[in-house]
């Protein structure tokens, strides 16, 4: 009889995450020509935390205050009927809204692309941005939709059966990205 067990391995530690976010912040400032017209919208739960961190860095490096908000995409998911109804996350737009702004969506892991697809739909119902960009801490591949990230913290080659978990200080008490693999023991 074989037994399955989970083997997990940290692929990014705290300092790696800090460095990745710092780099993304610089890239955003560079690509948006000073980040003067952007809104950072994190996808709850961890994307919202990452958006807040990016906002702090952009304020520090770019000397502009980038409005930060969150965009819950639960009601727009295409896989709602595969699981019991889930609790909703918070949608919180900056007071000036997103119209004619460059919205940078922030998520922790980019995988199939379906979350981002849902986010684009959700965005459509709350305003009309000038452009939408995507920042992700980890891109683990296996896209099922024609979606790519503009800013990537780390490209992480994975098997489809593996799981990627992101831990953040504010929520989980530590910073780490962990790859979880199911191994069959003989």
């Amino acid at each position: 009889m074989s037994e399955a067990r989970n083997v997990s391995r940290a692929v990014l530690e705290g300092p790696d995450i800090q460095r990745a976010l710092t780099r993304i912040a610089h890239e955003i400032i560079e690509r948006t020509k000073g980040a003067g017209n952007i809104v950072l919208l994190g996808i709850p739960t961890r994307g919202a935390t990452l958006a807040a961190r990016l906002g702090e860095r952009i304020a520090q490096f770019g000397e502009v205050k980038a409005p930060v908000g969150s965009l819950d995409i639960t009601m727009y998911r295409d896989d709602l009927r595969l699981r019991p109804a889930r609790p909703l996350g918070r949608t919180e737009l900056p007071p000036d809204g997103i119209d004619d702004r460059v919205v940078v969506l922030v998520d922790d892991v980019l995988f199939s692309g379906r979350t981002v697809r849902a986010a684009l739909d959700a965005l459509n119902d709350v305003g009309r941005p000038k452009a939408v960009q995507l920042a992700t801490l980890v891109d683990r591949g296996h896209r099922e939709l024609p979606i790519r990230a503009d800013y990537v913290g780390k490209n992480l080659p994975t098997a489809k059966s593996e799981q990627v978990k992101v831990y953040l200080e504010e929520i989980d008490g530590r910073d780490a990205v962990v790859l979880i693999k199911r191994e069959e023991d003989q």
Binding site: M75, L80, R81, R83, P84
Partner: peptide
């Protein structure tokens, strides 16, 4: 939503 939004 909670009654119908998830799996049947």
């Amino acid at each position: 939503y909670l009654l119908l939004g998830g799996e049947t």
